[in-house]
Write a protein that binds this DNA or RNA. Structure first.
Lengths: 220, 220
DNA sequence: CGGTCCCTTGACATTCATCAACGTCGGTGG
DNA sequence: CCACCGACGTTGATGAATGTCAAGGGACCG
């Protein structure tokens, strides 16, 4: 695991434009990860918090029957590792090659939050953002058909990535998308083809998607 | 909305045994609600945080087609109203008659958290608990059959209620359960009958369930 | 050139939503 | 008191959505 010792400014910028205060950033250790590399182990002691700096990561768990459920896609700016338990309930691994993650020692940040209001507020805000993201996800998993799931996933990815450009880059595989939406790969593929045939989207490549008709996507 | 002016101690105890510090509790306003009464409106300014004192509440949203998706069941001790946005994304209403809710003015508690580490830590902890609960819920909504969903719901209710007694009291209707598990009422009913016939559970009444064979429930 | 993912499509089986009907319980008013 | 009513819960029949199994093509890499 190559440790990057010198945090550089541009990489530390969060998506929302909120940077952790320097005093907190001084505690961060940057790490670059290979695709599939574990960042946080399930059942590991929750001694650190993390933030995605660049690339993408997935938070997931393996089900008893061997299938995988992805809990959350983590994009640059997203914090993770928050838990009420002593140990992490889920594993997190890099979804793309070269993903960079900042690691913050939990205890030290907690102590810092006690005296530094800015740090406390940032943590709360990040936790609230996680809550909002997870709640929005409930709607995606709930009563939606496969094409609807895929459509709202694409819309969410468009909003979360470069601020809503029409061309969406999907850093993850179809398998990842399937496990995220809790449908089979085949269904993802069919839904994608369906959206394409209906004229809602166009595929530049398998991983690059241009949204042609956002209305048609919404209506799915 | 009958306001209860005098907070009484026993009611304020959270399920996990963590009480908000008195200094924070002094800001609380207690309210008793009728079944179905709105506590927090969707698209309402997020000016308050809340905590369920007794009874139960549901956080939900109405889908475009008129169906309802329940995001979270809120039981005594649970905080809600945390959001990263200016407005609440979801409505919350009382699920049982006489539910009592404590309301905390958000800004004042935030200011208090700046100088009172205990308050800041409590808020974080409550937020982390919400995150853990929502993540566990992803698994319930994801790749599970209807009987599996119901089984894990019953297990979770058993754990969350009186500390794991074998007799579970369901404060909510079958319709609530259906909208929570994102399946139809009929399917809930059929799954319940299935579990009953398989000997995993026994029904004292429609709303009182005795777990006979936890293993069989898990194995669903 | 062969191997390994990744993506897509087809055929079939299974689960679940939907529509319909009926039973139960508690409250309310004739 | 009892008949009625509405909300809730259960069961059955049917069709649609999706999982599963199977196969094949394309991109990348050693």
């Amino acid at each position: 695991m190559p440790e990057i010792t010198q945090p550089n400014d541009y990489a530390l910028r969060t998506r929302g434009g909120r940077n952790p205060p320097e005093i907190m950033e001084a505690l961060a250790a940057l790490t670059q990860c290979r695709r599939g590399q574990e960042i946080q182990g399930s059942a590991q002691l929750a001694e650190n918090w993390y933030r995605v700096v660049s690339g993408a990561a997935i938070k997931f768990t393996m089900l008893a029957d061997g299938r995988r459920q992805i809990i959350d896609f983590l994009l640059p700016g997203d914090f993770f590792g928050f838990t009420a338990e002593k140990e992490h309930a889920f594993a997190v691994e890099a979804a793309v090659e070269g993903t960079v993650v900042a690691r913050y020692p939990r205890q030290r940040v907690e102590f810092m939050a006690d005296t530094e209001p800015r740090v406390g507020r940032l943590i709360r805000e990040m936790a609230f953002e996680t809550i909002s993201r997870l709640q929005a996800r409930m709607l995606m998993l709930g009563r939606k058909t496969a094409p609807q799931k895929l459509a709202s996933f694409l819309i969410a990815m468009a909003e979360r990535s470069a601020g809503g450009t029409a061309e969406v880059n999907l850093p993850m595989s179809r398998y990842d998308i399937a496990d995220y939406l809790a449908i089979s790969v085949e269904t993802v593929s069919r839904a994608m083809t369906g959206l394409r045939h209906s004229g809602a989207i166009k595929l530049t490549s398998a991983r690059r998607i241009r949204i042609i008709d956002p209305g048609a996507l919404d209506g799915q």
